[in-house]
């Protein structure tokens, strides 16, 4: 599961300790420009846990240099052991704009990411640090580029889109290559409208930052363009979320009753998915985390 770096570090660490106790294999710590600094949060989690692996990312090489990314990993590994995995990617375009990084018309992003990954791996190798580097991908170019990484984390929830994305990756030479998904999530035994709303708004954010190709595939390009304009004009995200069709939520999130989860995961497994990161708002509370662990039938 992922942790929410918008919460206090104390809360994040508490939920990570719980995740470890419940039997989760990984916690992923996302790096978002408007939230806490993921490598420091990861350090706090690692200091209080023993076994659970810690995924760092998605980190954007457009925000942090390859040396800085590798430096974070090296410092974490040298302090806490080889418990870390790294995911890089361009980052949400709207969030990048807010810190002065414009990816909208930039060409060759996938080439830049590949170059960054190669540089990161070179630095890690020099320090004899073993840390898989994943690519967080959504659009076709990025999916094709992911072949050269240790694995790809797909930013989708619907099995139809996952299948499409896996097909886009194409033939992979690396026999250890892993397919994973990292999606907004709400798996529930008893539906809570408050959590549902959090999921809806978060899906809106992902949709607003999605690539043009994906939006056209989902027939959402026009609505999203209008929504982005409205956002820039100061309309609240809550209002905008209501204007975006429900199919965006179906596409970008795992939104299931507990009893449906098993069949869904079996379907993903059939598509080659080995790694599933249940994102926000599944980490909303210890109760929602426990609901997920029961649905997954995890052994503490």
């Amino acid at each position: 599961m992922s942790v929410n770096v918008n919460e206090t570090i104390h809360e994040t660490v508490g939920k990570s300790v719980l995740a470890e106790k419940l039997g989760f294999d990984y916690v992923w710590v996302s790096d978002v420009p408007e939230q806490r600094y993921a490598p420091v949060v990861a350090s706090a989690i690692a200091a209080r846990t023993k076994r659970i692996k810690i995924g760092l990312g998605l980190l954007s090489p457009f925000v942090h240099s390859p040396l800085q990314i590798a430096g974070s990993v090296i410092t974490l590994v040298e302090t806490y052991g080889e418990r870390f995995e790294l995911c890089i990617g361009p980052g949400d375009r709207n969030q990048m704009k807010r810190i002065g990084i414009n990816l909208t018309h930039q060409r060759g992003i996938s080439d830049d990411l590949l170059a960054a990954k190669n540089e990161i791996e070179k630095i890690l190798r020099k320090r004899r640090v073993d840390c898989p580097v994943w690519l967080g991908a959504q659009g076709p170019k990025m999916l094709r580029a992911s072949r050269f990484f240790a694995g790809v984390l797909l930013n989708y929830g619907s099995s139809e889109l996952v299948k499409w994305a896996v097909d886009q990756v194409g033939q992979v030479k690396n026999r250890n290559f892993k397919y994973g998904i990292y999606a907004l999530s709400y798996v529930y035994a008893k539906h809570d409208p408050k959590i549902h709303k959090l999921l809806k708004v978060s899906c809106a954010v992902v949709t607003l930052g999605a690539t043009k190709t994906v939006l056209e595939k989902l027939s959402l390009a026009e609505e999203v363009a209008q929504a982005n304009k409205a956002l820039e004009n100061g309309v609240s995200l809550d209002l905008i979320a209501n204007s975006i069709p429900d199919r965006s939520m179906e596409s970008f999130s795992i939104h299931k009753r507990s009893g449906e989860l098993g069949a869904y995961l079996a379907e993903l497994s059939g598509l080659g998915i080995e790694h599933v990161v249940f994102g926000y708002p599944q980490n909303h509370s210890k109760q929602t985390i426990r609901q997920l662990s029961r649905a997954l039938n995890l052994k503490p």
């Binding site: 600094y37 490598p39 420091v40 990861a42 430096g71 974070s72 090296i74 410092t75 302090t79 630095i123």
Partner: peptide, 9 residues
């Protein structure tokens, strides 16, 4: 290749 912030943490 070290992160000063992680070291501080």
């Amino acid at each position: 290749p070290h992160d000063v912030f992680v070291s501080a943490s």
